[in-house]
Design a binder for these strands. Structure first.
Length: 878
RNA sequence: GGGAGAUUAGCUCAGCUGGUUCAGAGCAUCUGCCUUACAAGCAGAGGGUCACUGGUUCGAACCCAGUAUCUCCCA
């Protein structure tokens, strides 16, 4: 046999992934005999590449899916990507720019041609990367949110919601992303703390030239859009000025001083310049006072001609700097203050958002949100960890209408068609639209060419919220076999950041279109951070490339490393050490296999390890029960740790050491058979976490049939064997004795190869006798004898009420030995007293439950036994 | 500013209904070992005022009130 001392993942991973696919193990089919288990992937951006967050998220999904598959369920994990309107369009625009092509010079069709070509070339790389991670998706079901069928689903839903009166078009103040050139929804706005400047500007009073009203603003570039200055009606400082006119600095235009409750008396100077086009509150004030609206901003964030020739065409921030200088020179700038404020930025581009009045499409949320809140409140859908329920409730109770139109080309074009008179119809196709338009206008002469389709596309989330239904074609064919079987899905694994963007909206869509929740459990992962707690980012360069990690350590090591330290909802502080630990674990398993593989059976030998086998059998049943419980509660890290300890501590450190034959000695066939069985069971339990090495070892361990793969093996269902509790308890005592001897070895510096003798002084020799061979082997004893009195010159310890001695001529420090025993005795006495005190307390005896009382009595008895043994030991030293 | 959650060993976290020798795990640390599966390893050890202050209780890491600090969400 020439098996390498270390496991080398690179040689085996690609091979097994290919075999699994060839065998079709990941493909799910409608099968009424089996229970379905469905997961839809949170579709990554089609232009994206795998990052650490994806690794964590997809590892968790794969663990769940693989276990379900082994449990005999029809496991269906649907992969796919979304089209990510803003991000993708930005990338394509940038690429075209490099080629010297300006988007403005292209028609919509030409642009989409470029975009699709780009997507074909670069899109979906991430799905190939997931295969390297071992993700057991059904790749035959791969979907893309902008493919024809999913696009049709989106349009159907739009038309349906419009006809139900839930979608409307209107002029509203929206969040304008000047860099993306589009409106975005409230949820896509991220507030960031920034250090800003407050400019105190002088507005001259028309009636009193040379006298000024000071107005504080953080955006002096918007003064050209001012239509009034407002003060609070209760503010005595300005009461006399109300109704007068002031001159806007530099601009010179006269605007009135008005009152409005919305002005904060204690903010700035208590005066507010009102620019209805560029601020939500100002807009409301403008409406209330019938003020005009002056828009000085272009869509790209530059100022327009309304701002005057000097500033037109310049970027808003450049104008801010320039105008500050101009104001200064004109003596109209009172002062500039530094102040901490909040900048609203775009989730997609990072650009500072401009509130902008524009005509957009909205989806009413109230009707949809109510039932979606209800199903989470009553635990029809469970969030893991449950603390997110609070957040979910608050959001759902305060949800505002969803702005679903985007001023982009990459996405589903809104199916609204405008008539020459400006009115519009909403329809699935141009033909249908024409019919409706003729009906609506009463003009049968109307031609298709007279209609103009809305230029905007829909928010990407307006595709994603349909994902659990649309991937099974549930919109165009609502009663098909797949959707009836696989929907509702079971578990969803995603990040808390998109709880509202995506999860909440999927719940709404599921209830609206299937009258059923889209999933039962939502597992929320944390954010992957570096060891210093910083979010991983390209700018910081603190994120390793996941593919490098897989190449260097193996996918199994990376998967387990990621899971070691990531309880649900908690951030994962990534540290290379975690991957090392994962790698070490694969190596440990590999070497356990090497050991067992090397054993040669001798048919003449009888079964020599009944105790060890009975013990590990009991241990295994116990561990599987614990493991299953962790899984039911979505405690993935705990589940992994449970198997980790079972394999490393119980199987390798204990069991294998118990049954391992001497060097080059043969093993009895029964022990070998049972050990191989155990190892197979362990491979099954490990498989969801470490799919590759377990499959490799599964096939190394025995000749397998064509479809005999651990990947589809039955998940172990074990019941504790008869006498399990006793086997566990007895072995624990034996192990305590072994540990006692080993402790003495360490204290006295006796190497593991040197044999020692052990003398036992006990009233109950049965257990020690029964386990004597095992204890002798594990503690490397030369002899184990029973004595009536402590031998001279020996170091002793107390275990399970008996005394043990290791005779060590010339190495025993009697004084130190006594001191150690006395210390132990003091502790035991103190402990006994505290238990006694408890049992002597009438109220305790009266109030405590019987089993609690019983346990206390047992504690007392144990303590008494230990004290007796220690006292005898001390006497023996006299 | 409003709300939610958290604070347990050097680090990351468990700790269920208040009661087991209950103060735990993994990693890290320290000591000794190249013991024929594994030094990516083996054997052992040390380490905590359960954030703080009060309260309830026979009994509190756990329940209650307040304080401090941190994180997240919303404005």
């Amino acid at each position: 046999m020439s098996l390498a001392k270390t496991y080398s993942p690179a040689d085996v991973e690609a091979k097994w992934y290919q075999r699994w696919q060839e065998k079709g193990f990941f493909q799910a089919h409608v099968n009424p005999k089996k229970q379905p288990y469905t997961v839809v992937i949170p579709p990554p951006n089609v232009t994206g590449v795998l990052h650490m967050g994806h690794m964590l998220n997809n590892t968790i999904q794969d663990v769940l899916v693989r276990r379900a598959r082994m449990q005999g369920k029809e496991a269906c994990w649907v992969p796919g990507t979304d089209h990510a309107s803003i991000a993708t369009e930005a990338k394509v625009v940038a690429m075209l720019k490099e080629q010297g092509i300006n988007k403005k010079d292209l028609t919509r069709e030409e642009f989409l041609g470029h975009a699709f070509a780009w997507k074909e070339k670069y899109g979906g790389i991430i799905l190939e990367q997931l295969k390297q991670l071992g993700a057991s998706c059904d790749w035959s079901r791969t979907r893309f949110t902008m493919e024809p069928k999913l696009t049709e689903a989106v349009l159907r839903v739009f038309v349906d919601l419009y006809r139900k009166g839930l979608i409307y078009r209107g002029v509203r103040m929206v969040n304008w992303d000047p860099q993306g050139g589009t409106a975005i929804s409230d949820e896509e706005v991220i507030a960031k703390d920034v250090q800003g400047k407050m400019f105190h500007l002088r507005y001259e009073l028309v009636s009193e030239p040379g006298h000024y009203l000071t107005v504080a603003t953080s955006r002096p570039e918007t003064i050209m859009a001012d239509v009034a200055v407002a003060v609070n009606p209760t503010d005595p400082r300005y009461a006399a000025l109300v109704g007068q006119q002031v001159r806007i600095p530099l601009v010179g235009r006269e605007v009135p001083i008005i009152t409005d409750e919305r002005v904060a008396v204690d903010f700035g100077t208590g005066t507010l310049k009102v620019t209805p086009a560029h601020d939500l509150v100002d807009y409301e004030i403008g409406l209330a006072h019938n003020l005009p609206v002056i828009d000085v901003l272009n869509d790209d964030g530059t100022l327009n001609e309304q701002a005057g020739a000097r500033y037109a065409g310049m970027d808003r921030f450049a104008v801010r700097r320039l105008i500050a200088k101009d104001l200064q020179e004109a003596g109209l700038l009172d002062k500039i203050e530094e102040y901490a404020t909040i900048a609203q930025t775009s989730e997609r581009t990072g650009a500072v958002i401009e509130p902008k009045l524009s005509l957009q499409w909205f989806l009413k949320m109230e009707h949809l949100a109510k039932p979606a809140l209800e199903v989470v409140e009553n635990d029809t859908i469970k969030l893991h960890p449950p603390k997110f329920k609070n957040m979910y409730r608050v959001w759902m109770e305060n949800v505002r209408d969803w702005c679903i139109s985007r001023q982009l080309w990459w996405g589903q074009r809104i199916p609204a068609y405008y008539l020459p008179d400006g009115s519009f119809v909403v329809a699935l196709s141009a033909e249908e639209a024409l019919g409706l338009a003729r009906e609506q206008s009463g003009n049968n002469e109307l031609q298709a060419s007279d209609l103009r389709q809305d230029e905007d596309v829909l928010d990407t989330w307006f595709s994603s919220w349909l994902w659990p239904i649309s991937v099974f074609d549930g919109f165009d064919d609502p009663d098909n076999a797949d959707i009836n079987y696989f929907y509702p899905t079971n578990d969803l694994v995603t990040a808390p950041e998109i709880l509202f963007f995506w999860v909440a909206r999927m719940i709404m869509a599921g209830l609206e279109y299937r009258q059923e929740v889209p999933f039962r459990n939502v597992y929320l992962t944390g954010i992957v951070r570096d060891a210093l707690g910083r979010k991983m980012s390209k700018q910081l360069g603190n994120s390793p490339d996941p593919l490098d990690l897989i190449r260097d350590f193996g996918a199994d090591a990376v998967r387990t490393g990621m899971l070691f330290s990531s309880p649900a909802g908690n951030d994962l502080l990534y540290d290379q050490k975690l991957i090392d630990q994962g790698r070490n674990f694969t190596n440990k398993l590999w070497n356990a296999f090497r050991l067992v593989k090397g054993w040669e059976p001798d048919a003449t030998l009888g079964f020599a390890n009944a105790q060890a086998v009975a013990w590990f059998e009991a241990k295994l049943a116990e561990a599987v029960a614990a493991l299953d419980e962790h899984f039911e509660k979505f405690r993935m890290s705990d589940a992994l740790l449970a198997v980790y300890k079972l394999v490393w501590d119980d199987f390798c450190s204990q069991y294998l050491e118990m049954v391992k034959p001497a060097y080059q000695a043969p093993i009895d066939p029964e022990t070998l058979r049972r050990t191989v069985d155990f190892l197979e069971t362990l491979l099954k339990l490990l498989h969801p976490f470490m799919p590759f090495i377990t499959e490799e070892l599964w096939h190394e361990l025995a000749e397998r049939g064509p479809r005999d793969y651990v990947c589809v093996a039955h998940w172990p269902v074990l019941t504790a064997p008869a006498g399990a509790a006793e086997a566990l308890a007895d072995m624990a005592k034996a192990q305590e004795i072994v540990a006692g001897v080993r402790n003495i070895r360490n204290q006295k510096n006796i190497g593991p190869t040197k044999q020692v003798a052990l003398a036992v002084k006990t009233d109950d020799p049965a257990l020690v006798q029964a386990y004597a061979p095992l204890i002798s082997k594990l503690a490397n004893l030369s002899e184990l004898t029973f004595v009536q009195a402590a031998p001279a010159a020996a170091v002793g310890f107390v275990a399970s009420g008996s005394e043990f001695f290791v005779p060590l001529d010339g190495q025993v420090d009697v004084a130190a030995e006594r001191a150690r025993l006395e210390k132990e005795l003091t502790y035991a006495l103190g402990f006994r007293d505290s238990v006694n005190k408890k049992l002597g307390n009438e109220k305790f005896v009266a109030n405590a439950k019987p089993d609690v009382l019983e346990r206390e009595r047992q504690k007392l008895a144990d303590a008494e036994a230990k004290i007796a043994a220690l006292e005898q030991g001390l006497q023996g030293m006299e």
